[in-house]
Design a protein around this nucleic acid. Structure first.
Lengths: 259, 259
DNA sequence: ATTATTTTGATTAATTTTGAACGAATTAAA
DNA sequence: TTTAATTCGTTCAAAATTAATCAAAATAAT
């Protein structure tokens, strides 16, 4: 493996994980510590990663408008993956799934890409990742809604997107959360919220994926009340106060899936 | 295996993988290191790939979660770019443009991305590239059709895609060609051809982009006859025989734009 | 069929990269 | 604070990669 291939492998690894140590990289690249250190030095000199004692880590907080369709938040990657894995267990072969945009639902889509299901989404980022995950015609069939491409988030929104969603019927709607508070589910973009509402309408069951940092947070736009949420998948790092908030609104052990 | 075949094999390999080493290429091409190096040198001199110690890699290294649906290297890239540049001159600010999938139309979309126009397309590849090309909210507004994502080509097809296209009206339809022969425009995928037909219906003027290698070729599916083609943009390497073919079907100096 | 031209593969010397060793620097433990 | 254990960066010899040269093989032209 030559240098360029090694650097690519490291970057690829960091897209999936938060950080990588010298030892891990040695195994991954089949190279000596000296070489790995030289590679790390190169990457950090280029400003692509952050150097720290024992390894390197992803730079937190990309300027989001610079890398439009790539990963946003690099925080809680492992937590999000765990939540996604748990949520994916709900889905059986042959079912139809609607997936909202968001970093946690993105992880979910990577897993679901391998199942024999139909996926309907309005997120370009998710479609791109499914395309990478699966092999040609194997795995899930994908249906994308049409509509206006919202530049920042890479999501398709507007009346056309909604009309498209209304043309489909799904077993599950997997939604991401901007925040969950006493009034229910909220998100930051009005146009995206519209499509989320439509997904809720068109699906049998609505599942919300939210790591613990989202509970107690209120975003600008109201998506729906707790009555529409059938299941909430979240971390077990949940504070008592937040757990009480959920229970007071009708979500109990049955509906809350902790990972 | 001759040189042309080797270069094609390498390019094809690089469409699937990020990079290729000299050793890998030796096995893949059944050739000696010396020959492989000469090939690598050629490709990098042409600017088609990036040279690095121990091998070559794809020139444009977009974020890993967009790879398959982004750039695919091709031959005749400069010709295609030249055709795209010429075609883009037709479009004025404020107009609405439909763009078909294809490598030449892809180049066109990169140019049009910077104009103050509206772009309607059913190609994910094109949408991704526009997204990269322009800066957030600057440049063209993009509308994507919904539909079934055809795995290989990354295009949205099927009844939903057609219905979406029929909801829009455009000044221009820019189509790519699988082949152009005495019966008119042909392409290889039945479902894609359907959307191309719809684009022709919904646009004021239909422009076909085709490098000279496409003239005289017949693909499986008929898109339309010459009567629907308002302009053909192609190279001036056109053979006399092919030029005659075009003229015999009503395309003259007025309609054929040579670059 | 013969000759000229191009392409290929082996050889070699120069250059670059790599891995191991070791002292310096940093963190963790006592 | 002192000590032990990692980790880091650098040096240097070994290994790998490259470009150049040249003869053999393949291809094209006469």
């Amino acid at each position: 493996m030559n240098q360029k291939a090694r650097l690519d492998t490291i970057i690829h690894f960091l897209n999936e994980h938060q950080n990588i140590s010298v030892d891990e990289a040695c195994k991954l690249l089949d190279a000596s510590p000296a070489t790995v250190r030289r590679d790390f030095k190169l990457l950090s000199a280029n400003g692509e990663v952050e150097k720290n004692w024992g390894g390197i880590s992803r730079k937190i907080d990309y300027p989001s408008d610079m890398k439009p369709l790539t990963y946003r938040s690099t925080h809680f990657i492992e937590e999000k993956k765990a939540i996604a894995r748990k949520a994916s267990d709900l889905v059986q072969d042959g079912e139809v799934v609607m997936i909202d945009g968001g970093t946690t639902t993105l992880e979910l889509s990577k897993i679901l890409a391998h199942k024999k299901i139909r996926i309907i989404t309005n997120s370009l980022l998710i479609v791109n990742n499914i395309h990478i995950e699966r092999n040609g015609w194997e795995g899930a069939e994908v249906f994308l809604t049409g509509g206006f491409l919202y530049p920042d988030s890479g999501m398709l929104v507007g009346p056309e997107a909604n009309k498209n969603l209304m043309g489909y019927h799904a077993d599950w709607a997997f939604l991401s959360a901007g925040g969950i508070n006493e009034s229910g589910l909220t998100n930051s973009n009005q146009l995206v919220v519209e499509t989320e509402r439509t997904m809720i309408e068109q699906a049998e069951k609505t599942i919300v994926l939210a790591d613990y940092s989202k509970i107690g947070i209120k975003s600008m736009c109201q998506v729906c009340g707790f009555d529409k949420i059938d299941r909430l998948v979240t971390n077990d790092k949940l504070e008592d106060e937040h757990f009480a908030l959920l229970q007071a609104n009708g979500l109990d052990e049955q509906n809350i899936i902790l990972v």
